[in-house]
């Protein structure tokens, strides 16, 4: 499903973030979003998801999103597999969720409460959850924060393998580490 952002304008107080900004995300496209801190990457993702109403402009309605937020937003005290089952499926999907997660995390960590996992592992749980969910478009806000270079590459491979034809829009400061991947790079 193509997503069109038209004539987007938004300001925080006196600070202008966007003015008449247009963007088209093609169905199944891979997009990387890069810009210096404070230029509105997170704001743009929040507007696309419908969590923030822009001052002006429109975003294609009716699109189902899944997302990795700036913070991991994991259910406290619950296991990694519980995080996936919260957004899709039920008990009967537990084995499938475990198999899904096993592509990104060590097996022994999957049934541990997420509070006992390292920061990088928690981040990967949040990434797996976004890819496990039913959606038309996956939005990721700095998904590789806290991951070393080899884990980053492994995670990027996992993301591309599990997209299943969905559109991906990913904001990052680590563009150079993703140069091997065929992203269309956008800037603000």
């Amino acid at each position: 499903m193509e997503i069109e952002i038209q004539k987007l304008s938004h300001r925080f107080g006196e600070k202008l973030i966007f003015e008449d900004y247009d963007l088209t995300l093609k169905d199944g496209g891979l997009y990387g979003l890069t810009a210096p801190s404070g230029r509105g990457k997170t704001t743009l993702l929040r507007i696309i998801m419908g969590l923030l109403a822009p001052d002006a402009g429109t975003v294609t309605p009716g699109v189902r999103y899944s997302a990795v937020f700036q913070t991991d937003r994991l259910l406290p005290g619950r296991t990694a597999v519980d995080q996936l089952l919260f957004v899709r499926g039920g008990r009967k999907d537990r084995d499938a969720a475990l198999a899904f997660l096993a592509g990104l995390l060590p097996e022994e960590s999957l049934t541990q409460p997420v509070g006992e996992l390292s920061g990088g592992m928690q981040r990967r749980v949040a990434i797996a959850r976004a890819l496990w969910a039913d959606s038309d478009c996956v939005l990721m806000d700095e998904p590789f924060t806290g991951l070393d270079e080899s884990t980053l590459r492994h995670t990027a491979d996992f993301i591309l393998a599990k997209l299943r034809g969905r559109t991906l829009l990913l904001s990052t400061h680590q563009k150079e580490l993703l140069s091997d991947y065929s992203f269309d790079w956008l800037t603000l």
């Binding site: 999103y65 899944s66 997302a67 937020f69 937003r73 259910l75 919260f86 957004v87 899709r88 959606s135």
Partner: peptide, 24 residues
């Protein structure tokens, strides 16, 4: 509020939100 926002984006069913976010 961050988890409630997450549930909204992912269209998590209301019953599940009540049981897993509001109840605890």
């Amino acid at each position: 509020p961050e988890l409630l926002e997450l549930a909204k984006v992912y269209h998590v069913p209301g019953k599940r939100v009540i049981w897993q976010l509001y109840r605890p």
